Measured scan of single mutants.
Amino acid sequence: MDVFMKGLSKAKEGVVAAAEKTKQGVAEAAGKTKEGVLYVGSKTKEGVVHGVATVAEKTKEQVTNVGGAVVTGVTAVAQKTVEGAGSIAAATGFVKKDQLGKNEEGAPQEGILEDMPVDPDNEAYEMPSEEGYQDYEPEA
């Protein structure tokens, strides 16, 4: 019985440690998101679009440190934060509304985080759909 109880105690310690790591990862992701939003706020009209992409990228980098179902929630929060940063930029006159959601080359930025393969159960990952990809044929 002692062996059984000791095993359960060790398992509990492992769960607590994993929860603490997840909590730490979420806190880091939130900190990076805040950094990115402050970065966007300090940019001029020309830099705002690039700044919004930076927020998304920093958040995406930190999301990889967070495991399990938390990833889905962090990704949703990050996307809403990026959308909010863009709205703030438009409201303050840093950028025109028609410039939001495009990178410096004018290509749409939507789907940055949505296409990231995420499995809350950590069982399997699927690649994003290939609808947006084109076949590449090298020139002879």
Results as ranks from 00 to 15, higher is better:
residue 79 Q to W: 14
residue 106 G to Y: 04
residue 29 A to C: 10
residue 37 V to W: 11
residue 50 H to L: 11
residue 129 S to G: 06
residue 98 D to I: 11
residue 78 A to G: 05
residue 64 T to D: 03
residue 82 V to A: 03
residue 134 Q to D: 15
residue 104 E to W: 14
residue 32 K to H: 07
residue 53 A to L: 04
residue 54 T to C: 10
residue 136 Y to T: 05
residue 35 E to R: 05
residue 9 S to G: 05
residue 134 Q to M: 04
residue 53 A to R: 15
residue 12 K to D: 00
residue 81 T to Q: 03
residue 124 A to P: 14
residue 95 V to S: 11
residue 128 P to C: 12
residue 45 K to F: 11
residue 35 E to P: 02
residue 72 T to N: 05
residue 137 E to K: 05
residue 43 K to N: 00
residue 61 E to G: 03
residue 76 A to L: 11
residue 25 G to L: 15
residue 20 E to K: 08
residue 65 N to G: 08
residue 53 A to V: 13
residue 22 T to P: 04
residue 72 T to P: 00
residue 93 G to D: 05
residue 39 Y to L: 03
residue 50 H to E: 04
residue 67 G to F: 04
residue 90 A to W: 15
residue 98 D to E: 06
residue 69 A to G: 05
residue 96 K to Y: 11
residue 91 A to P: 02
residue 69 A to E: 02
residue 125 Y to F: 14
residue 53 A to H: 03
residue 19 A to W: 13
residue 12 K to W: 15
residue 92 T to Q: 11
residue 104 E to R: 12
residue 138 P to E: 12
residue 27 A to S: 10
residue 19 A to S: 01
residue 94 F to A: 03
residue 103 N to R: 07
residue 119 D to L: 09
residue 128 P to Q: 06
residue 63 V to I: 09
residue 88 I to D: 10
residue 72 T to R: 10
residue 80 K to I: 06
residue 86 G to E: 14
residue 62 Q to D: 04
residue 114 E to I: 10
residue 119 D to F: 07
residue 78 A to T: 09
residue 3 V to L: 08
residue 93 G to T: 01
residue 84 G to S: 09
residue 101 G to Y: 15
residue 34 K to V: 08
residue 133 Y to P: 15
residue 103 N to S: 06
residue 106 G to R: 01
residue 83 E to A: 12
residue 33 T to W: 09
residue 34 K to W: 02
residue 138 P to S: 01
residue 117 P to Q: 08
residue 20 E to S: 06
residue 19 A to N: 02
residue 82 V to C: 08
residue 5 M to P: 00
residue 63 V to A: 13
residue 115 D to C: 09
residue 83 E to V: 01
residue 120 P to L: 09
residue 17 A to D: 07
residue 30 A to V: 04
residue 137 E to G: 12
residue 130 E to M: 07
residue 133 Y to L: 13
residue 50 H to V: 03
residue 125 Y to N: 06
residue 105 E to I: 09
residue 4 F to L: 10
residue 28 E to D: 06
residue 127 M to S: 08
residue 138 P to C: 04
residue 9 S to A: 02
residue 130 E to G: 11
residue 38 L to C: 12
residue 58 K to S: 06
residue 132 G to M: 14
residue 116 M to A: 09
residue 121 D to W: 06
residue 54 T to K: 14
residue 24 Q to W: 11
residue 120 P to S: 11
residue 119 D to P: 04
residue 48 V to P: 08
residue 50 H to M: 06
residue 40 V to A: 12
residue 52 V to S: 03
residue 65 N to Q: 06
residue 113 L to D: 10
residue 118 V to C: 12
residue 61 E to I: 11
residue 43 K to P: 00
residue 72 T to S: 01
residue 74 V to P: 03
residue 20 E to N: 14
residue 100 L to N: 10
residue 23 K to P: 01
residue 52 V to M: 02
residue 72 T to C: 05
residue 116 M to S: 09
residue 82 V to H: 06
residue 16 V to H: 14
residue 48 V to K: 01
residue 27 A to M: 14
residue 55 V to H: 01
residue 109 Q to D: 13
residue 122 N to M: 05
residue 66 V to A: 05
residue 80 K to V: 03
residue 139 E to M: 08
residue 66 V to N: 02
residue 96 K to I: 14
residue 17 A to Y: 03
residue 135 D to C: 12
residue 111 G to E: 14
residue 93 G to A: 01
residue 20 E to Q: 08
residue 44 T to K: 01
residue 67 G to A: 09
